[in-house]
């Protein structure tokens, strides 16, 4: 039954059981599928990052427009993060992780094998590598000795406001947003790694539902990749 039909039903007119209900067993055997739960969670995640994007754009646009050519946004003290090479390397790692998870899913569908387990392991390890890369990137962005590589943007605000006690990354709102957004994204990856570990345990134990578990793991990973690509698009395009 379509949602529209369901919501326009006149329940007082038709006591009894519809054909759909009659065909149903009295009780569905558990456990419940986690697909809908995951979908809803991703919906919450989407909301979180949409709001962060809105905040990013509003903060960037605060106090007047950009000063031509400088990449600086007037009184908002905004200096774009730029495109450190590590950003691209990390992203490539997350893409690879997602691809490997899909390979693991395909292999698991074919039946439990050493290859499927190995692929699942590699997928998670690539996720860990992504996180390690992100941490390295944070260190770079907080270090003015790398200012040259970053087009001098990260340290410009800090240098202009020597009275500030804030660390380098905090003085520039663009960098601060980068820390905030990539940090929250990293926490989601960390949560994904916990789910990955649990899935790995299940896969090693064998039994029913393994394919679905790997599938949901891969789905989560795809989504985190999508979120990251959109966020990265935001960082490099503004």
């Amino acid at each position: 039954m379509s949602l529209f039909a369901a919501l326009t039903d006149k329940p007082w007119l038709s006591p009894g059981l519809g054909a759909e209900a009659r065909a149903r067993p009295d009780e569905r055997p558990g456990p419940w599928d986690k697909g809908i739960g995951l979908g809803l969670f991703l919906f919450v995640v989407t909301m979180l990052f949409v709001l962060l994007t809105a905040a990013y754009l509003m903060r960037m646009g605060a106090h007047g427009g950009a000063e031509a050519g400088s990449g600086s946004h007037g009184a908002s003290h905004w200096h774009a993060v730029g495109e450190p090479p590590l950003l691209w390397i990390n992203t490539a790692m997350l893409v690879a992780s997602s691809i490997v998870f899909h390979a693991a899913l395909t292999a698991t569908r074919a039946g439990p094998s050493l290859a499927s387990r190995a692929l699942l392991l590699v997928g998670g390890l690539l996720g860990i590598a992504f996180l390690a890369g992100q941490i390295a990137l944070w260190r770079i962005l907080d270090d003015c000795t790398h200012a040259l590589a970053l087009g001098d943007a990260a340290c410009a605000v800090r240098a202009a406001a020597p009275a500030s006690a804030a660390p380098v990354w905090a003085a520039n709102p663009a960098t601060a947003f980068f820390y905030l957004i990539s940090g929250l994204h990293g926490l989601h990856i960390l949560g994904g790694l916990a789910a990955w570990a649990l899935t790995g345990k299940r896969v090693l134990a064998g039994g029913a539902g393994i394919v679905r578990a790997v599938q949901l793991c891969a789905r989560y990973w795809d989504y985190m990749l999508l979120v990251w690509l959109v966020m990265m698009g935001l960082f490099v395009s503004t």
């Binding site: 009184a75 905004w78 500030s164 709102p173 601060a176």
Partner: peptide, 23 residues
């Protein structure tokens, strides 16, 4: 951390605080 997401430039008791440009 001293970021300036929300806190604008503020002069308090003749002293400029570390924040700048927040909304």
């Amino acid at each position: 951390a001293g970021t300036s997401f929300f806190v604008p430039t503020i002069v308090s008791m003749g002293k400029t605080l570390g924040h700048a440009g927040g909304s």
